[in-house]
Design a protein around this nucleic acid. Structure first.
Lengths: 214, 214
DNA sequence: CGCGTAAGCGGAATAGGTTCCGCTTCATGA
DNA sequence: TCATGAAGCGGAACCTATTCCGCTTACGCG
């Protein structure tokens, strides 16, 4: 079974996230491949920021990165996978805080507190990167659930729900994350005119409800 | 503001759903337009059933219906809108039962009972039409939230949650429906190997939790 | 250091959704 | 009944994502 991460394994490039081992296991044409992967991510980031995710074509990314389109598809399963890879990188910091930062997000606080802290932070992340998140969610159905990042969110929520004594923690973790999908948040933001703070507050309440034994 | 239903207003055709007034308000070239709409829906239904939603191209639908591609796009905003229209039709029966059928789905039962009955029925609907639902959810972000059908589900859930005394019934209705998205259910069905009955049971429990004051 | 091999590359070709626009045909009303 | 305006129609053209495949070239080995 493959990494199904939208990002044909191999973590990050060299220039971006300066320190980070080249890649991993298997082994060959890394020099070029790794360099190209980095060039692509840099190019995508730049173009997405400049023109908006929708308007950037894969051709454009390839050209900006100075590689052929084929190369894009060697490193990322599709456009959504490219978005996923970019997000993955940006979310890494939050993941670290969540796993080993200070409470209430990190270890040390009560499960419910950690959960609401997670929800708030997560909503912020999604809202900030909304375009990218929406793009990443156009992947093949279920593809996003298979990304390493998503697996981590899910495991974390399930764990906290479990500690809090909630029944069916796995299902509830899925439900909670579903309620925080890019599409849902975009809807609240644009159609309902809620602002991020409101969403954060409301969803934290939702998390609390899901964490109770009820 | 437009019907944003993925289906440029006008309800159903003539031949399908035999009885049903031609359409509504505004008024002209109905004869052909209405007939064509029906031909397209029939053709799509037939081809989707025969070849699977993914493999059917818009060209093929047009050809089967005996109209030009342009005509497809006159009546439906895009391929997802076509799916939405098909679903809308199939869901109508459930909607009627929900609004005026016998308890526990229809009026008469306790709110929480009605809600769990709704969830069970809804999950069944989604699971049955999974391909179509998934296609409909590839529409522009948020488009599905704007369909008449979705508005009805949402209103219904919110109402029941409200009656049950749950806080933030609107938000919880959204969260509940998000948990029942095609993508989520497809995931549980295929990746987790759950069967429909399991999903039904688990999500009914979720509904109960959301309905409690917690 | 020169080969052999296969990972990687580039970009033309493909495929299918969506748009555009000139041509038809319906429906109205004189 | 016929003229007329506009709703609808058809399908070619367009735009992009994605695939394919023959060519390059980094790398390990003798």
């Amino acid at each position: 079974m493959k990494e199904a991460n939208g990002t044909d394994s191999a973590l990050s490039t060299g220039s971006r996230l300066p320190l980070r081992a080249q890649a991993q296991a298997a082994g060959s044409r890394r020099a070029d491949a790794v360099r190209n992967r980095g060039k692509v991510l840099d190019a995508a980031e730049r173009l997405f920021a400049r023109d908006g995710v929708e308007r950037v074509t894969m051709q454009a990314v390839a050209k900006e990165a100075g590689v052929g389109v084929g190369t894009l598809y060697r490193g990322f399963t599709d456009k959504a996978g490219l978005a996923l890879a970019l997000l993955d990188e940006r979310e890494r910091r939050f993941q670290e805080l969540m796993l080993s930062g200070p409470p209430p997000l990190g270890p040390g606080a009560e499960p419910v507190e950690r959960l609401t802290a997670f929800v708030s932070g997560y909503v912020g992340l999604v809202a900030e990167q909304l375009e990218l998140v929406l793009l990443s969610q156009t992947a093949a159905p279920g593809a996003r659930f298979r990304s390493g990042a998503h697996a981590l969110w899910r495991t974390h929520c399930r764990h906290l729900l479990d500690l809090a004594g909630a029944p069916s923690p796995g299902l509830r973790a899925d439900a909670l994350l579903a309620a925080l999908s890019g599409e849902m948040i975009a809807y609240w933001l644009t159609e309902e005119g809620k602002d991020p703070a409101e969403i954060t507050g409301a969803t934290a309440g939702l998390a609390r409800a899901l964490a109770s034994a009820g």
